[in-house]
């Protein structure tokens, strides 16, 4: 028990415990049937939340008021761009991914441009931007070749011994993000800005550049996420990113990152993403209707936030 103590003090442990208990509740209900398959499915779906969650985490860590509301629109547009560039052709997969990445990064950079030039809160800037991106997507995505190349769809759904390859790659990516956050100048600068922007500026942190990089990073991750989603679900559509507004913010907060900024937690994003995906699986397994599922999802998120609570508000 004594050995467990330092583990329990970690803020991310709770999200994993939550995910574990939801998983146990579900397999208790099914009598153990499909326990492994459930983990595989949860891993495959959690990947998409983790990728945008990491981007959102860096943004939220910048401090109160920083949040990227343009992610859903960004994911939608990038998925369309990726599918159009790939055009069902296996040879164009890498080019398509790069195009999605570039689209997302451009959106992120545009977000910061609005924040900087108009001196408006990031919420309003990313909101205005998302209006415009949404329209571009609707207009651009019309009558589009929306099927991914077979090679790309296979890659996005590829599993080795029941473990999705995409999940392994995402774990590697999150390890990289954790190192960037804790051990690199960039990450330490983000944390410093979130703790006290004025002090960070006086200490010589190039605040403008770091914020620009962070919004661009969040945008780029949204872009790559859009392309991967289109591959996994074998097609792009305008609404493909809709659920990632709540999901990206929720995994950051449930995962133990401070909404007041200045304190981030990378493993928690994984735990929270698994928790959310498994929660949906559980409610589906219990056979509840769509209305009850939405109701319970909402109540559980509010409940978890209330239990975790106690920090200063996001804005």
């Amino acid at each position: 028990m004594a050995a467990l103590k330092p583990l329990l003090a970690k803020p991310w442990i709770w999200s994993f415990l939550g995910a574990l208990s939801v998983w146990l509740a579900t397999i208790a209900f099914t009598g153990g049937y499909g326990a492994g398959g459930m983990v595989t499915a949860a891993l495959s779906l959690a990947v998409f939340t983790v990728i945008v969650g990491i981007g959102q985490m860096f943004v939220i860590t910048l401090g109160p008021g920083n949040v990227d509301l343009s992610l859903p629109a960004n994911i939608g547009l990038a998925s369309a761009v990726a599918m159009k560039v790939m055009d069902g052709n296996d040879a164009m997969i890498v080019v398509g991914l790069l195009a999605a990445l570039a689209t997302g990064a451009a959106i992120g950079a545009a977000n910061y441009l609005l924040i900087w030039a108009l001196r408006i809160p990031p919420i309003i800037a990313t909101l205005s931007a998302s209006f415009i991106i949404q329209s571009i997507d609707i207009s651009y995505g019309r009558g589009l070749q929306i099927k991914p190349p077979p090679g790309f769809a296979d890659f996005a759904n590829w599993q080795v011994l029941g473990i999705p390859v995409l999940a392994i790659l995402t774990v590697l990516f999150t390890i990289g993000a954790a190192i960037a956050l804790q051990r690199m100048v960039y990450g330490r600068s983000v944390l410093a800005i979130g703790q006290n922007i004025r002090a960070a500026w006086l200490a010589g942190v190039n605040v403008g550049r770091i914020r620009f990089l962070t919004y661009t990073l969040s945008g780029a991750l949204g872009g790559i996420d859009g392309a991967l989603l289109a591959g996994y679900f074998r097609g792009a559509n305008v609404d493909i990113g809709n659920e990632y507004l709540l999901a990206s913010i929720a995994v950051v907060v449930i995962g133990g990152t401070s909404v007041a900024g200045g304190k981030a937690n990378v493993p928690g994003v994984w735990g929270a993403a698994l928790f959310l995906v498994l929660l949906l699986t559980m409610l589906n397994t219990f056979g509840v209707s769509a209305g009850v599922r939405l109701l319970l999802t909402g109540l559980i998120i509010v409940g978890v936030i209330t239990a975790a609570g106690g920090q200063k508000a996001l804005r």
């Binding site: 109540l299 936030i305 609570g309 508000a313």
Partner: peptide, 11 residues
């Protein structure tokens, strides 16, 4: 509980 209204209202 000093909660972030964005997350609570999203829920």
């Amino acid at each position: 509980r000093n909660l972030p209204s964005i997350v609570v209202t999203l829920g």
